[in-house]
Nucleic acid binder design. Structure first.
Lengths: 149, 149
DNA sequence: ACGCTATAATTGACATGTCAATCATTGACA
DNA sequence: TGTCAATGATTGACATGTCAATTATAGCGT
């Protein structure tokens, strides 16, 4: 792999990670986009779909359909809220809690595999780079859309 | 953004990058998966679909369908090869060459934006980290599938 | 209280990717 | 040469994501 652009480097690392994680996800019964929703709901019980879309910066439509799947799989429930009939309150079922625990454990092992041979400093540095790259793009995007409008 | 796992860090950086690049791709008339195919075909004229699938480690089915789109968009042509009637020879049209040049230029600008505030050493380090992470996962995957079989 | 606008969720249509099945061609071996 | 297995491409079905349109509810301003 001799890529010339960071764009492709990032793609390949991400893509390989998803590929590596696939068997585990299949075993747990989750799709590749679902763990993040699971973890957010675990950390914020009774949150709304909108919160998920905002936090992960994905389309509410994607959230809506993933919740459909996760509800059908028995990992979450959409509970009606008397006060707010527009949004549902989301929470994990027992199976959802269990799936989340499995995922978290596996995810930690995966991170360990990915960072094999990295020193503690390098890990911190890598995380810092990823955050900085993310923020640079985010800032640029905000500027450009603000300017264009 | 205060993620606890590298898994999510990588996802967010990748996702933000794709989001940042979207307007440019729309302008050129390319889908998000097409630039990499374009660049490979530019570097390897008359290559086969299989080579694309192998190089980028994606499913041949995805390649097949993206080529359909790119052919319909007028960026590539599938030329029959008398010797080998199973695969087609792929090449860029003039429009394809032009799209590739636009993409490459924009991609360089994007990398510059993403790496704003990075020193030269940090850039090299970041690239190295991404390659090492990729290879760690690749090796682990090979081991596990070899072992499982 | 009424109506208008803004917000939340959903649905449809599409792109990218996976997986499984099919189909055609190739190439090797009896 | 003729059969048969391996290879390459395609197609169908699904998950994730985008975008645009629709629907229902909230909430504000008069």
């Amino acid at each position: 792999m001799m890529e010339t652009t960071f764009h492709l480097l990032l793609y390949r690392a991400f893509h390989m990670q998803r590929s590596y994680l696939r068997p585990c996800l299949r075993e747990i019964g989750l799709g590749s986009g679902q763990p993040k929703l699971l973890s957010y709901i675990a950390a914020h019980p009774n949150c709304r779909p909108k919160a998920l879309a905002d936090y992960f910066e994905i389309d509410p439509a994607a959230v809506s359909r993933m919740l459909d799947v996760m509800e059908k799989s028995g990992f979450i429930v959409r509970r009606a809220d008397g006060k707010n009939r527009r949004s549902a309150c989301l929470s994990l079922t027992e199976a959802g809690e269990e799936a989340f625990r499995s995922w978290r454990a596996h995810c930690q092992r995966e991170d360990a595999v990915m960072l094999r041979g990295f020193t503690e400093e390098e890990r911190a540095c890598f995380a810092d780079f990823l955050v900085r790259a993310y923020r640079n793009l985010q800032d640029a995007q905000r500027e450009e859309t603000a300017c264009g409008k």
